Simulated scan of single mutants.
Amino acid sequence: MNTDVAPRLGGWQQQWQQTWRVVAAAALGIPFWVSTGAALPRGCATDTCSWLVSGDPLVALGCLTALLWRRRFPLAVAIAVAIASGASTLAVGAALLALCSISTRRRPVEIGVVTLVYVAASQLTLVLYPIESPPGTLWLQLALPTLSAGIAVAMGVAIGAGRGEVRSLRERAESAEREQTARAEQARALERNRIAREMHDVLAHRISLVAMQAGVLDHRRNLTTEENRTLIRGIADGSHQALEELRDVLGVLRADPGRPEPPQPSLDRIPELVADARTSGLDVTLTTTVTGRPSDVVGRTCYRVIQEGLTNAAKHAPGAPVHITVEGTAGGELHVSVHNSPATTTTPQPPASGFGLLGLAERITLAGGKLSHHPTHDGGYALTAHLPWPNHDHEKRS
């Protein structure tokens, strides 16, 4: 809807509601006015009785006009109209509407004051008009205004409660919408971080090995034909594997229906990772003394630590020997260490993202472990992680 049209429609709606309520108040006062005229003595057309057809409608008209300001000055308008209704039976409807309107605020003191003023003012009718009342009907003269005031108050309180409920529901809906928007933003941020982390883990290792092989191929002029063929085959295979792994990651992130989820990295796949690194030209040794089988999270984190260490060694220390140590047992910790010696060859380094160790530190923190990385005294570099390994079997037995 046009933004200029919506306010106009809202204004017309409020004006229409204001109009029909005033008309309803005027119509409600007509039965009181007619019944009062019927109760007057015959021939009472002069003196006091003339007020019924002259002053009574004018006072009622003033009360109906005052109702237009009842939302701006609710208490003042309600008291003024309640007092005026004592001099105008036609204004009784306006007084009841004012009492109903102020009751929507649900303030007992205001409601009590206006109700007392209305009931007291209703007794002025007996003074203003010469209506003969049977003896002992004083209670009836008080009961009827009190009953009508009680009905108006009950309606006003019910309307106010309904408005409060609607307001509360609207606030809850707006709060829920804000929370949903915040959760959606958080989910998008987490998904972006997850995509960036997975893309780095999958591609950085492969591309680093491919870049290392390409650098060797470019700088070594004394390679034999078989060595050149081996390096070229390694570059092609590494690029192909990088594309395949990238396709697998994107398939998981897009939640492709019918596409099987690729196997997640684990502790069992570390020898395969080391073998790929050796095939690509890295001098890697692996020492494993692990007793038991850790959880999937611990195994996957361990795999990522070794993968990041091999990636950094290929980037920053080409040709250097790399030694990997994995040791631990259930109920203690899993220790992972990747240490490389200084570089033995000089090749152009591929561009670094700078987020590898940051993402790895985040992974290890989520797993409850600790990460340290620093240069060593021999000019190399060491990457070490300590991961908690609770003994779940012992917990189940206990």
Rank of each mutant, 00 (worst) to 15 (best):
Leu217Arg: 03
Gln18Ala: 11
Trp51Cys: 07
Asn391Ile: 00
Ser54Lys: 01
Val298Leu: 06
Val117Leu: 09
His374Val: 03
Cys302Ala: 14
Trp20Cys: 08
Val23Gln: 12
Cys63Leu: 03
Pro134Gly: 07
Ala275His: 14
Thr325Ile: 10
Thr46Ile: 05
Gly258Asp: 11
Glu333Tyr: 05
Asn228Gln: 12
His392Asp: 02
Arg105Tyr: 06
Gly112Glu: 02
Ala149Ile: 00
Ala255Ile: 11
Pro375Gln: 04
Ala196Lys: 12
Ser353Val: 03
Ser175Gln: 15
Asn222Lys: 15
Ile79Trp: 09
Leu273Thr: 05
Leu9Phe: 11
Glu272Phe: 11
Gln18Leu: 10
Asp218Tyr: 12
Gly299Asp: 03
Pro294Asn: 09
Val5Gly: 03
Pro7Met: 07
Ser133Ile: 14
His377Phe: 00
Glu132Gln: 14
Thr3Pro: 05
Lys396Arg: 11
Thr287Ile: 09
Val77Gly: 02
Pro262His: 12
Pro321Thr: 01
Ser148Gly: 08
Glu245Ala: 15
Trp12His: 13
Gln307Thr: 03
Tyr129Asp: 10
His374Lys: 05
Val81Ala: 07
Ile306Asp: 00
Arg70Pro: 00
Ala317Pro: 05
Arg194Gly: 03
Arg254Asn: 07
Pro134Val: 10
Gly160Ser: 09
Val81Tyr: 03
Leu246Gly: 07
Ala361Tyr: 06
Glu226His: 08
Asp256Trp: 02
Thr289Glu: 11
Val298Tyr: 00
Glu191Asn: 07
Val216Asp: 01
Thr115Pro: 13
Leu144Ile: 05
Leu334Thr: 02
Val284Trp: 00
Ser101Ala: 14
Glu171Gln: 15
Val117Gly: 04
Leu67Lys: 04
Ala98Asp: 11
Asn312Glu: 08
Trp16Lys: 13
Ala80Glu: 06
Arg304Met: 14
Leu96Asn: 00
Gly162Asp: 09
Pro375Ile: 01
Pro41Lys: 12
Gly10Lys: 09
Gly281Gln: 01
Glu244Trp: 00
Leu28Ala: 11
Ala87Val: 07
Phe73Pro: 00
Arg105Gln: 10
Thr46Asp: 14
Arg259Ile: 05
Ala361Thr: 05
Trp389Leu: 01
Pro318Thr: 07
Val22Glu: 04
Pro135Lys: 12
Leu217Pro: 05
Val252Phe: 06
Ala255Thr: 13
Trp139Asn: 01
Ala45Leu: 02
Arg254Lys: 05
Asn391Tyr: 00
Glu198Met: 14
Arg233Ile: 03
Arg8Ala: 15
Val23Asp: 08
Thr224Tyr: 13
Arg259Gln: 14
Leu190Ile: 09
Thr137His: 08
Val81Leu: 06
Leu273Cys: 13
Leu253Ile: 06
Pro350Thr: 01
Ile83Phe: 10
Thr225Gly: 07
Val326Ile: 14
Val298Thr: 12
Cys44Glu: 10
Leu250Gly: 01
Thr329Arg: 02
Gly380Leu: 04
Leu334Asp: 03
Met155Cys: 08
Ala158Ile: 15
Thr301Ile: 10
Gly368Gln: 10
Ile30Val: 15
Val249Lys: 05
